[in-house]
């Protein structure tokens, strides 16, 4: 699934990486627990999280996450936006609940990691 489509399905606002929306993601992982995210090996990964802090961006950087979607209407801080831009990470914000976001992405064909 192209990130463009993710943005559309989640009715999301693109915060950083607007030039990379033609990139593909194949897998989705949803967690507020960053410890969990660090154990995932998959490439082309979309992370859905409600953990809107700087460490979520750092975790995405180390775990090679392609795109982070902040759900439940969580807003990124200026520090998060700065770090995400530096890293060339695509970040988006959606007002959907975690369940709603997962449901539409799953229906759209995004696969679970396990």
């Amino acid at each position: 699934m192209k990130l463009n489509e993710v943005v559309e399905l989640l009715d999301a606002k693109v915060i950083t990486g607007a030039d990379k929306l033609d990139k593909e993601v194949s897998f989705g992982f949803a967690s507020d627990l960053l410890s969990d995210v660090l154990t995932i090996d998959s490439e082309y990964l979309l992370l859905l999280t409600g953990m809107a802090n700087l460490q979520a961006i750092r975790t995405a950087e180390m775990a090679e996450v392609s795109c982070v979607a902040f759900v439940r209407d969580k807003k990124m801080t200026p520090e998060m936006i700065e770090l995400a831009s530096e890293n060339g990470l695509v970040t988006i914000e959606s007002s959907f609940s975690m369940f709603h976001a997962i449901a539409v992405l799953h229906d759209g064909g995004l696969k679970p990691v396990y």
Binding site: D32, L33, L34, S35, D36, L38, T39, M51, N53, Q55, A56, T59
Partner: peptide, 15 residues
């Protein structure tokens, strides 16, 4: 509260 503390770090380092 920061999203850590699941007791998975050291096992993940080993892996």
């Amino acid at each position: 509260e920061m999203g850590f503390g699941a007791g998975m770090g050291l096992p993940n380092i080993k892996r």
